[in-house]
Design a protein around this nucleic acid. Structure first.
Lengths: 211, 211
DNA sequence: AGAATAGTGTCTCTCAGACATTATTTG
DNA sequence: CAAATAATGTCTGAGAGACACTATTCT
């Protein structure tokens, strides 16, 4: 291995104040970059990915999957760097950033170092795509949520309005959530709380939720 | 980089004698393994992947995409090895193997070294999945083909029979192939030849062909 | 009472899936 | 003319998408 470096980056998404956010670390100059970790000799890749933001975000990790491996020869001017990039979701009720990491709105990202802008864009593509055929959307919400909150989450990520009745019909017919006893009170009529049915994960992954 | 090795593996599929085949290289003992290449310091990952079977298969490369990066600490007993695995398709009219590489039927693979059996299984999943929503199927055929040959390709990969009329309707309505002047004569009525419409690639990738 | 949000049903149109017969060539 | 393969159309059922009003709570 003549001078080829390997590391792990993570694109971490969360919903904050009605907008999709990404967690970034300060880089050279005024730039920012994706949180990274060196791979330890005896550590699985996923663990290195989790380490990239461990202790910086007070949240259990809701979702972590490999995104892509970037290895263009000149992507980092400091040397040949191959990065295995992971993609993570953090529920919106957690994820207060501490340390040097900061949340940025996806629709107004700061300048990013190296090829990180392209990586974040691709991660958003993946998130939108997976939203349509799997149950990742729930990973951005707390354990209990209302149907309006769920719809709102989908709308923010997809960037488009969805029909309330059609949304509810499809989500409920898919059988992946169930009503709990609780209600959320607020400004108008209180809303029923729902929870994600863990036993439904497997079957949902097979079929598209939104075709 | 304390003792972490990085290389590139390739899962190469082709259709031969009415069955899906994978290209393998001899390994320790009676085992076989996926063709591999060391990453050169100034070489893109794709190029290393292509190098893993360059000169061994007399064919232009029809399709090459990154599959996944495997990096479990104990996957290779000789040391910590991270492998970026690619996935390739070779048209059935080309791809005569030479050198040490051999084609094996997917339904009767020899014992594979390390975690390569799992990798090949995952690659087949990906191939089947992509067949349903993109145009990769055409990459396994020569430039001109009959609709029966195309359907046959789909049936072999998906492992199930398809209805002839429904298949033709969907393929033709998708507008991704066009009739050429030629015909293929053989035992029965001669069949019209079709070719893949290059300008259709982009739009097809967006929508599922087989839902 | 008014403002705010939750919750609910129908119709239409497109498309997937099942299904059988005729057409053209070769030996 | 027999065998082989190519080519073609219809019906039905499921599901996506468009669409508007009633219900419940809070102030």
């Amino acid at each position: 291995m003549t001078g080829i470096l390997l590391n792990v980056h993570v694109v971490i998404f969360s919903l904050r104040e009605d907008a999709l956010h990404v967690l970034l670390a300060p880089a050279q100059g005024k730039n920012w970059q994706l949180p990274a970790a060196e791979l330890k000799p005896d550590e699985p890749l996923e663990e290195a990915a989790a380490r990239a933001f461990a202790g910086q975000v007070d949240s259990r990790l809701a979702h972590l999957e490999q995104l892509y491996t970037y290895g263009e020869p000149r992507r980092d001017p400091r040397g040949r760097l191959v990065s295995v990039v992971y993609f993570a979701l953090v529920p919106s009720n957690a994820g207060q950033a501490s340390g040097k990491l900061c949340w940025f709105r996806m629709d107004s990202l700061p300048p990013l170092a190296f090829d990180h802008t392209g990586i974040v864009t691709y991660a958003l593509h993946r998130l939108r795509y997976k939203l349509e055929y799997s149950a990742v959307g729930f990973q951005l919400l707390p354990a209990e949520f209302t149907l309006s909150e769920l719809q709102h989450t989908y709308e923010i990520i997809l960037g488009e309005r969805l029909d309330k009745r059609n949304f509810r019909r499809r989500i409920l017919e898919a059988g992946i959530i169930e009503k709990t006893a609780g209600h959320r009170t607020g400004e108008g009529r209180p809303a029923s709380l729902y929870r994600y049915r863990l036993d439904a994960v497997a079957e949902v992954k097979a079929r598209r939720l939104f075709p």
